[in-house]
Design a protein around this nucleic acid. Sequence first.
DNA 1: ATACACCTACTGAACGTTTGTTAGGTACAT
DNA 2: ATGTACCTAACAAACGTTCAGTAGGTGTAT
Lengths: 194, 194
Amino acid sequence: MSSKEKILGTAIVLFAQKGYSGLSMRQLAQAVDLSVAAIYHHFPDKNALYLEAVRFAFSDKEQVFAQVWESGCSAEEKLGGFIRSLIDVMLQDRDFHRLMQREIQEADPERMQLLAQGVFNRQFCFLLQLVTELAPEQDAHLVATSVIGLAKYYIECQPLLKNFPGWKSEHERPEVIAAHITNLVINSLKVKTA
Amino acid sequence: MSSKEKILGTAIVLFAQKGYSGLSMRQLAQAVDLSVAAIYHHFPDKNALYLEAVRFAFSDKEQVFAQVWESGCSAEEKLGGFIRSLIDVMLQDRDFHRLMQREIQEADPERMQLLAQGVFNRQFCFLLQLVTELAPEQDAHLVATSVIGLAKYYIECQPLLKNFPGWKSEHERPEVIAAHITNLVINSLKVKTA
DNA sequence: ATACACCTACTGAACGTTTGTTAGGTACAT
DNA sequence: ATGTACCTAACAAACGTTCAGTAGGTGTAT
């Protein structure tokens, strides 16, 4: 692995942990066992490094969902598979997820467009298509958004949710969360809406 | 309004905007038109100021929902009213909402407990009760969580969602979001689950 | 083969600025 | 006179950034 890749990989983890202004170039340099100036040899400044790290983290998430769409399952099963994959990706790559969260929080319009078009567009379109197939009379965008929102919330709010009454340990198992969301959405789609 | 309250009120807004390490004591001092030392007269250090600001922001959200629970509506209508209030609160007090998000992101277990018990407990219990009433055979915690998660996601991801295909401008109107979520959940509850 | 030029990857030390924090003092209440 | 609220000015430390320099590899002319 090249130094540049090592810097980017480490930067993802540390930016996700500490945020942009929370991570100093010296801390990053120490973490990759290089001098500060060596980082400046590879990147013009801190901001460019951050942006490249975000892009770097985005670059390998496409193929996880491909097998869901390409499977010969029914539309309902595909929806279940997608939800399960979504949760798995978020749970496995928590650094990526946290970086995402920070990006969304900052809500820079330009970067939001980059994110939507450059990263998630394919998956969202597939999901949109699936929802339309399952319930043509519903607002597909709203439903698709709900699917993603539900999955996202369960992952990121788990530390908080644990402290509410009614919580069970099975609620942190991905298959339980996925099954609940899938049920919720599919049941809702079965009922004709005004 | 006392200086201390002015400091806390401004700190909430600025911490929400820039994060803990993103806001310097000098910036805060300038924003409240005081010297840095004056802030240190009221608070021992930056961390204590932050914690007190978070508590300060938490202190006035209880009564918004009271009228929903105390209304003589049906359970279904109450759920709709709760969801609508939830969205309104989040939209109106975006600083509070962003501070919350940052807290959740940091996920300090101790603070999560403080949040759950000291701030949201009453509302969550009411919601739990409502869900149990509407669908006794379902996992009330999971359903209640879904309600909150859906509302939260729509608010915080709107800048991203705008860039996906199928988005309509009506999707940012609180009554549309509330109606969609209410429909989704109520429809789902009507169907008996395995 | 060898000297020279040139490249990339990197270092150590320093630049000026900003950071959190504090000491000492003033103005004005009680 | 005692305390509260605030100031200016300074502290050391950490910050992003730059600069001169070096070690090692590669290609080229002699």
